[in-house]
Simulated scan of single mutants.
Amino acid sequence: MTVSEREIIDVHVHMNPFWRMDADAKRTLEEHSADFERKVELARNPERFLEYLDEQNVATAAIINYVSPILGYTHATNEWAAAFRSEASESERVLAFGGFDPRVADDPTAELDRILDEFELDGVKIHPPHQGISANDYRDDPDTRNLEELRQLYARCAEADVPVMFHTGTSIFSGARSRYADPMPLDDVAVDFPDLNIIMAHGGRPMYTEEAWFLLRRHENVYLDISSFPPSNLLEYFPEIERVDDRVLFGSDWPGPMVPDIGDNAAIVEELELPENTIDRILRTNAESVFDI
């Protein structure tokens, strides 16, 4: 194992209550994830997770949880994520993301209150291919569904300085709808909520990286989370990434399907033909700014 020489911040780690997963989704994860039971053990024991972070030279990790009928995760995952963070003895090393879907919440406004006021989550994740919604579905026009509660989510997160992360690109899980993989709906969100920090997870990989690049160049409040990219191929997808290096965040997607350990991922980023200050920004300092660490 090669571990990054720097203490890094990983903004995309899937520490989830795997035992709550839909059986088919869990089977997919088991088939494509080595030593899956060990990862389940880490999800049940925050202290063991911190030990893993130490092994990988990770200073802080964001655990990414969200609402997904495909995976079997409900809004109850928000409370789980908050509890996992608080149960870690060094809770400041864990950033807890939760999810939101106004169509399946009993009381969407009360759910937002829990996310932002009761649980004080560090971020919110929207997964369009898993949820079957578009990021701009709050708009009242022929192509969207006027989900006004999404507008409330973005407005409240902007006011609270809580970033919203969006999955962009495809998913291997059965039932994922790839027509929602295009990141372009984020253009509306960035225009309508210029004070909202928008994290574009996966950069539209593999088929929408040009759209992702356009959004990065156009909007100063859009960040690229490089999780799910094989780090050695990052410059093939984004050869001019240095031009936006103040808005690129390291994410591993561990322990997602076929994803190596966090330290291995980070070490490959260090080997890219990029200036040292760019690598520092990607692996740590940009995340410090976004999350006020």
Rank of each mutant, 00 (worst) to 15 (best):
S228G: 00
N221P: 09
N233C: 05
W254R: 02
E220N: 15
F250V: 05
R218C: 11
R247S: 11
Y223L: 15
A212R: 09
R243V: 14
T209L: 02
D253E: 13
W213G: 08
L234G: 06
M207R: 10
E242L: 00
P255D: 04
D245E: 14
V222W: 09
W254Q: 01
F250Y: 12
E242V: 15
P206A: 03
F238Q: 04
V248N: 12
A212W: 08
L215H: 02
N233M: 11
P257F: 04
R243A: 15
L249W: 03
P206C: 00
E236A: 11
Y208A: 08
P239H: 02
W254A: 02
P230I: 01
R217E: 15
I241H: 03
L215A: 04
L215K: 02
M258V: 01
S228E: 09
G251S: 09
P255V: 04
S227L: 02
Y237Q: 06
E211W: 00
L224S: 13
D253F: 03
P230S: 10
R247Y: 00
L215T: 01
I226Q: 04
L249I: 06
E211I: 00
L249T: 05
F238T: 06
P255L: 06
W213T: 07
H219S: 08
F214K: 10
F238W: 07
D246Q: 10
P255G: 08
P255F: 02
S232V: 14
W213N: 09
L216Q: 07
S232K: 10
F229P: 04
S232Y: 09
E236G: 11
R218Y: 08
H219A: 09
D253L: 02
P206I: 01
R217N: 15
N233I: 01
S252E: 06
G256N: 03
L216N: 05
V222E: 09
N221R: 10
P257L: 07
I241E: 05
R243S: 15
R247N: 07
V244C: 14
R247A: 12
L234P: 08
M207D: 13
F214W: 13
E210M: 08
F250P: 01
S227E: 03
P231F: 03
G251M: 05
F214R: 12
F238L: 08
L224V: 14
Y208W: 15
S227T: 05
D246K: 02
E236D: 14
G251F: 01
P257M: 11
S227I: 01
E240M: 08
P255M: 05
F214A: 10
S232H: 11
E220P: 06
R218K: 15
S232Q: 11
E236Q: 13
